[in-house]
Design a binder for these strands. Structure first.
Lengths: 123, 123
DNA sequence: GACAGATATCGACGTTTGTCAATCTCTGGT
DNA sequence: ACCAGAGATTGACAAACGTCGATATCTGTC
């Protein structure tokens, strides 16, 4: 109810007179706006390099990761890493803090959990 | 350990002598192969139309959804819907069953839950 | 205030993606 | 055997994406 979620078990399965199936409850489904928003968040996770960035940053428990440490393990050039970091920040998954010349990125608490909950089935 | 997961809280945060930060535990991070696999699954969820398809199919509790019911609510042509359905089946999210001339799609049990678990933080 | 270094932005390029019209394949009925 | 209709496949095309070299911006130091 609160946040949009893929699944909210419908209530119509009785009609068997239609040629192929009951017309299905489309009003319970995600509307285009909700779908667009959700998709944009999953899109941030749909690239291998970004997932690896997240896993590196997340493995630095309670700390941040300096941008300068990322290009080498990822095998990417600095502008590309910067590009991916921006996408992750825009998706609300990473937090950016600049201190001096260095930029530190950290996981936004509960951001992944929140995204996770949009995949929840009603058990 | 079992399935690859974004997060597995590292164990090094003591070194503060480096110019910007500790070199970060890259060996705990997702390797390229794991990242590629995970990304391909999230890619299936990164399109609004596919999310709406999933939500429509999922809202038909215990039943299946006929392909013929999808183009209209989605505002897409039949080949496009077929294309998205194939991607969702290939990602292991939907099950396809052909009966007569009609094709019925249903949610693969625990598929979304399994994907969900790859986003889990160690609490 | 000029300089060096870290990171962000820009522009370009090849690849991938979403969409559709046209076509193919298969199934059930006549 | 033929036909009609459902759905998958193909080919084309524009838009979006990932990557990088070049450049711009900002910060601390001399």
């Amino acid at each position: 109810m609160s946040t949009s979620s893929i699944n909210q078990a419908g209530t119509d399965t009785e009609n068997l007179s239609a040629p192929c199936c009951a017309p299905s409850a489309t009003q319970n489904a995600l509307n285009p706006e909700e779908a667009e928003l959700l998709a944009s968040r999953f899109k941030a996770l749909s690239d291998p390099s970004r997932l690896r960035i997240l896993s590196i940053v997340a493995s630095n428990k309670n700390a941040e990761t300096c941008v300068c440490d990322l290009p080498e393990p990822l095998g990417l050039k600095q502008p590309t890493v910067s590009h991916h970091l921006k996408i992750l920040v825009d998706a609300g998954l990473l937090h950016r803090e600049k201190r001096g010349v260095w930029a530190y990125y950290s996981i936004v608490p509960r951001a992944l959990e929140s995204l996770q909950s949009t995949l929840v089935f009603t058990p």
